[in-house]
Structures are given as C-alpha cells and as structure tokens.
Simulated scan of single mutants.
Amino acid sequence: MTMTILGAGFSGKAIGALASERFPVYGTTRSGAKFAALERAGIRPLQFDGETISDELAAALSETTALVQSISPDAQGDGFLRLIPSLETAMPRLEWVGYLSTIGVYGDHKGAWVDETAEPTPLSNRSRERALLAENQWLEAGAAAGVPVALLRLSGIYGPGRNPFVNLDNGTARRLVKKDQVFNRIRVEDIARATLFLMDHREGGAFNVTDHMPSPSQDVVAYAAELMGVPTPPDIAFETAELSPMQRSFYGENKRVGNARIRELGFEFLYPDYLVSMQQLWKDGVWRG
C-alpha cells in the first residue's frame, strides 16, 4: 500500500501522519519550506504547484494505491483531474480515492437535520464548485477507472494548534451571536481516522465526517474560556459585527448535519462532540499544537 496526499495541509498532514505508521505516504505542498514539517510527520514531501506534474510526482503517482485529494477546486472544478489523461493512466495501481469536501454542499436548511440523502443545494461559490463540479468529476473519474471514490464531507475543522483556546490565548476569540444559529465541527484526528477507515473498507460515495453535537459557536468559546479559567469574551451581535463577506456568508447556512452513515459501517469517533474534545485538548495540554 502506498498513499499520495494532494495538499498535505492541516487535514492532509494529519491523515499522512496516521497513515505513515502503516505504509509509505507521499504528500504535496506548494512550498519547499514546508518539507521539514511533512518529514517530521512521516510524510515524503513533493512540490506541486497545481499546474504541472513533475517527474517526481508522476513517479509517486505510479506507485499510488490510495489517493487523498485535499486541494480546493476552482471555478472549473478539480485542477488535478485536468492535468492527467485518466486515473488508470496516471495511477495504474490505484484502488481507492478519498476526496475531502465540505458539508457546505448542503446549503441552508434553516437549522433542520440533513444527511447524505439530501440534495446538494449550496449557496456559496466555493461549495457550489465542490458540489456541482469537483465531487461529480471525481465520482465520474472513479467510475471510469473502476475505483471507489469516497466523498468526505467535512464540517468546521479544528484540533491541536487550531481551536478556541489558541484564539483566547492570542486575544482573537469572539463570541458572535446569531439567533438559532448552529454549526457542526470535526477534530482533525477524526478526519484522519475516518479516511483510513473508508480506505480500508474500500468504501465509495458520500459520507458526513462531523461531530454529533451541532452547537452555537459562542457556546464553544464560552466553554473553552471556562476550562482555561479566563473571562468569557462579550457577546457580539451578528447583525452589527464587522465581518468579511466570506465570514458573513458562512453564517448564511444553518443546518444540523448527521453522521449516521459512517457510524453504521462501524466507525467510532474519538471526539463525538466539542465537550469531550475540548476537555482532552486542555487536559492533555495539546491545544497549542
């Protein structure tokens, strides 16, 4: 088994670190300055600018049996697929693909529960590209090659080094309050575990990789402040808050996303809700990363 991760960033590096305990893992990055960090995670780094496949990357792809795509799409969909003639040509040994997508594909459901059977109705351009182009492009490419493609639809990603404790520590934490607004979240370690679980089972199709407890963001910040023993930041009304267009659009989608499908296959989340997760980050002292 050999894995290649296209885009070994926060999530990709976590996947690679876990996978490298079992088999060789290649991971791409745009910057050679990030090579050392990937190597420390057990990943063999390769430079990839998203426009040209180098001889080194082509050689790694020829060995690849499991591919993880973590690079965001553009207006035309998936950039990597445009660079190769076909999956079977570029990766003759390929057995499975994991595409890291987003629960943003579901759009706004006014706080109602949704699962993988819901028709994607994304609101933002970024989610629309993933829903209508990149996800479908990968499913089509996998079907043509006879390779299962799992779409991992991720919620708000956090973990060591990226969490409310860090924001409270550096003074950037805010408690934005919008009536009845909730969000799902997912620990980066559970993304890694879910990826390898789906790979081991050669599962394809859409899977929501998210926690069990969609909650208001201000509650999570308040809980982190309680654990740290620091003052809770004041409430800021969403309607009057200074936000970028992207930040404001994030609050334009309100839904509760279920994760029953992957759990019914036997997957167990280490961090099923933010309460368990935040307690572990603080108690074990790993919140700084």
Rank of each mutant, 00 (worst) to 15 (best):
residue 93 R to W: 02
residue 76 Q to Y: 10
residue 45 P to N: 00
residue 71 I to W: 14
residue 25 V to R: 00
residue 131 A to M: 05
residue 123 L to G: 09
residue 132 L to E: 07
residue 117 T to A: 03
residue 53 I to K: 09
residue 33 A to V: 10
residue 37 A to F: 08
residue 151 L to Q: 11
residue 141 A to P: 03
residue 138 W to G: 13
residue 29 T to I: 06
residue 114 V to R: 02
residue 25 V to K: 01
residue 55 D to F: 15
residue 87 L to C: 02
residue 157 I to T: 10
residue 75 A to N: 15
residue 32 G to I: 02
residue 118 A to S: 05
residue 65 T to F: 07
residue 107 G to D: 07
residue 93 R to A: 09
residue 30 R to T: 04
residue 131 A to Y: 00
residue 52 T to A: 07
residue 113 W to L: 12
residue 55 D to G: 15
residue 55 D to R: 14
residue 47 Q to D: 02
residue 139 L to I: 12
residue 43 I to M: 09
residue 119 E to Y: 04
residue 75 A to K: 15
residue 24 P to N: 02
residue 65 T to W: 07
residue 34 K to H: 14
residue 50 G to C: 05
residue 23 F to V: 06
residue 115 D to V: 07
residue 69 Q to M: 15
residue 69 Q to G: 14
residue 71 I to A: 12
residue 144 A to C: 07
residue 25 V to A: 01
residue 20 S to D: 15
residue 52 T to C: 13
residue 130 R to G: 03
residue 128 R to I: 06
residue 85 P to L: 14
residue 67 L to H: 03
residue 74 D to W: 09
residue 148 P to Y: 01
residue 81 L to E: 11
residue 43 I to E: 12
residue 120 P to M: 11
residue 116 E to F: 04
residue 126 R to V: 04
residue 96 W to P: 00
residue 73 P to Q: 03
residue 87 L to K: 03
residue 150 A to T: 10
residue 18 L to G: 00
residue 142 G to H: 12
residue 165 F to Y: 11
residue 156 G to L: 09
residue 115 D to Q: 10
residue 43 I to K: 02
residue 92 P to Q: 04
residue 124 S to F: 00
residue 141 A to R: 00
residue 39 E to Q: 15
residue 148 P to D: 15
residue 120 P to V: 15
residue 134 A to G: 11
residue 119 E to Q: 15
residue 22 R to C: 07
residue 40 R to D: 04
residue 116 E to Q: 02
residue 147 V to P: 01
residue 74 D to F: 11
residue 48 F to P: 00
residue 120 P to K: 08
residue 120 P to W: 07
residue 76 Q to K: 09
residue 88 E to S: 06
residue 27 G to D: 15
residue 38 L to T: 00
residue 152 L to E: 12
residue 83 L to V: 04
residue 55 D to M: 06
residue 37 A to Y: 11
residue 142 G to E: 13
residue 119 E to R: 04
residue 108 D to G: 14
residue 158 Y to C: 01
residue 158 Y to M: 13
residue 31 S to C: 13
residue 90 A to L: 11
residue 121 T to I: 06
residue 102 T to N: 05
residue 73 P to K: 01
residue 24 P to M: 02
residue 132 L to N: 09
residue 87 L to D: 01
residue 40 R to T: 10
residue 113 W to F: 02
residue 89 T to P: 09
residue 148 P to G: 13
residue 120 P to T: 13
residue 18 L to T: 00
residue 118 A to P: 02
residue 94 L to P: 10
residue 139 L to Q: 12
residue 127 S to R: 02
residue 88 E to Y: 08
residue 102 T to G: 07
residue 101 S to D: 10
residue 132 L to C: 13
residue 95 E to S: 12
residue 148 P to L: 15
residue 137 Q to W: 01
residue 162 R to G: 12
residue 79 G to R: 13
